[in-house]
């Protein structure tokens, strides 16, 4: 990993002892290491695990989560959270089915449902900018968006049969499922936005210390509305992918998906308090969750227990994210007093 070697070099420039450098690396790449260890362990335990078929299958399951979690990473970079993405998936799912059966052209339907996602996100962002806590704003949206999905569909799931729409969930490109391709494109774009653009940097600044961002003249309102809008649009896209996989527009789609999305982001190392975020970590977090479920399923573990394990993994991730990592980082970065040169 090129990033890890630059971290090592930076560590040594700062005169950090080896143990401390290793601790920083463990904090930063712990989840990747956990994922690799899990893959090794499962490969030994199950002959069906280490196959291209299974890996593509897991990646395809993770794809909608990854697509939405990239947006969530930006929201969390600003110190926010969006609990409404699962309900938005449901709204997009039933809207897709309804608009298609009303005879609208497929590309118009795709544009409209993604705009529905963006609009719902913009509403969330606007309320957050009024000073309401993101948790409460998007919890309300979680409730009312699914409510709208049920109202709009009368509670019924409607089959989707448009071939182009279904292709999004079931097609493939050079042997790779389209959902994976879409998730990869979204992840690369998200990495670029977060790490290489002003907008990404300013999102981190807003989440890191909003007052400093304000007096430095960053447009906080615009940034916040933008990250929620983007996440809404990506929830729309993720909703299309999920709906196309199931060939079904259902008001029950995306149930509890917000938790998987948030778990992926937190597992990946993005701070719950804003200011620190990583798209690469988010992808690894999403893969980790899905590989754990897949591995347990292949072991024949009772699916209810799989859910229990998923919950504990999230708890562990939050524990690492909030308390442990900060302690380790602080310890690793405290230089001996002699090295401290006063400015």
């Amino acid at each position: 990993m090129t990033q890890s070697s630059s971290l090592l070099r930076r560590g040594s420039r700062m005169g950090m002892p080896d143990g401390r450098r290793l601790a920083l690396l463990a904090v930063r790449y712990g989840m990747l290491a956990a994922l690799l260890m899990w893959i090794v362990a499962m490969s030994i335990l199950s002959e069906h695990f280490l196959t291209i078929y299974n890996f593509l299958n897991v990646a395809r399951q993770a794809a909608p989560i990854i697509i939405i979690a990239v947006g969530m990473t930006l929201v969390m970079a600003t110190g926010g959270i969006d609990l409404s993405v699962g309900s938005l998936v449901a709204l997009v799912s039933v809207s897709s089915a309804a608009l298609l059966s009303a005879g609208l052209p497929i590309y118009a339907v795709l544009a409209i449902v993604i705009l529905i996602g963006a609009a719902a996100g913009a509403v969330n962002g606007s309320f957050v900018c009024l000073g309401l806590p993101p948790f409460v704003v998007t919890l309300s949206a979680l409730v009312y968006l699914r409510g709208i999905a049920f109202v709009a569909s009368n509670g019924y799931a409607v089959p989707v049969s448009d071939p182009v729409y279904l292709e999004i969930g079931r097609g493939s490109l050079a042997g790779i499922h389209l959902p994976i391709v879409i998730a990869a494109v979204v992840a690369v774009a998200g990495w670029y936005v977060l790490n290489r653009t002003r907008f990404g940097l300013h999102s981190l600044a807003v989440g890191g210390r909003e007052e400093a961002a304000r007096v430095m003249g960053l447009r906080i309102t615009r940034i916040k509305i933008a990250v929620y809008t983007l996440t809404g649009a990506l929830a729309g896209l993720g909703g299309v992918v999920a709906t196309a996989r199931l060939a079904n527009g259902s008001p029950n789609a995306g149930m509890m998906m917000e938790l998987d999305v948030i778990a992926a982001v937190v597992l990946g190392g993005t701070s719950l308090f804003g200011g620190v975020a990583t798209v690469g970590g988010t992808v690894i977090g999403a893969l980790f969750l899905n590989f754990v479920r897949n591995g347990l399923n292949l072991q024949g573990v009772n699916p209810f227990w799989v859910q229990v394990v998923s919950g504990f993994i999230l708890l562990l991730a939050v524990l690492l994210n909030t308390v442990a990592n900060r302690r380790i980082e602080e310890w690793a970065r405290t230089r001996p007093a002699a090295e401290e040169d006063e400015a």
Binding site: L204, G208, A212
Partner: peptide, 11 residues
Amino acid sequence: IYQDFALVPQL
């Protein structure tokens, strides 16, 4: 130069 320096600690 602000009283609290107005720096973003994570950056």
